[in-house]
Amino acid sequence: MSESESTKPSKINPRFRYEVAKMPGGEKLLQCFQCGTCTSDCPIARFNEKYRPRNIIHMAQIGLKNKILDSEFLWLCASCFTCTDRCPQGVEVASVIRILKNMAAEEGHIPKLFRELLSNLLKTGYVYEVPESRIRRRESLGLPPLPKGDSESILKTIQELKIARILNSE
């Protein structure tokens, strides 16, 4: 990061916290009193110094919307829910982070891995494309055939979602 970039003030969006708090799982965002339990118990934070759930919650509270949604660290959350279970204020930390990821995805920030998973789902009904050889091998292993995913039906149920439209239009 260049010096001018690192000292550039971030834009604050004072309405942002209410946007997050009205989503399912975000309701308790404003209750966070910054104790740091979530960060100290987070398995990812232990191995990555940039990843700090307490900071993410704080940034969401004060409205650093763009800074969060453009970030890469957001996608490091393992969704293990340890923070959610241990927050003394009942903040569903993992769900707040999921809400933020969902918002980032709607703005088009979608890591490659998730693009692949979604495109597999639309093709096969599963997030992985089970190779032909594996499907055939099931028989020799004595396993019943894998039902063919009904991707057409799945597409019908999700085509109106913003995320499906974003990927389709690309």
């Binding site: 996608w75 969902n102 995805a105 709607e106 998973l117 997030v127 063919k148 999700i158 913003k162 499906a164």
Partner: peptide, 24 residues
């Protein structure tokens, strides 16, 4: 009983859209 024409439970895609996960 084998579940016919099932699909992904939705969990791997929850980071993209909670609603997608609910539908799946």
């Amino acid at each position: 009983v084998e579940m016919p024409e099932f699909n992904c439970c939705g969990l791997p895609l929850e980071p993209l859209s909670h609603e997608l996960t609910l539908i799946l």
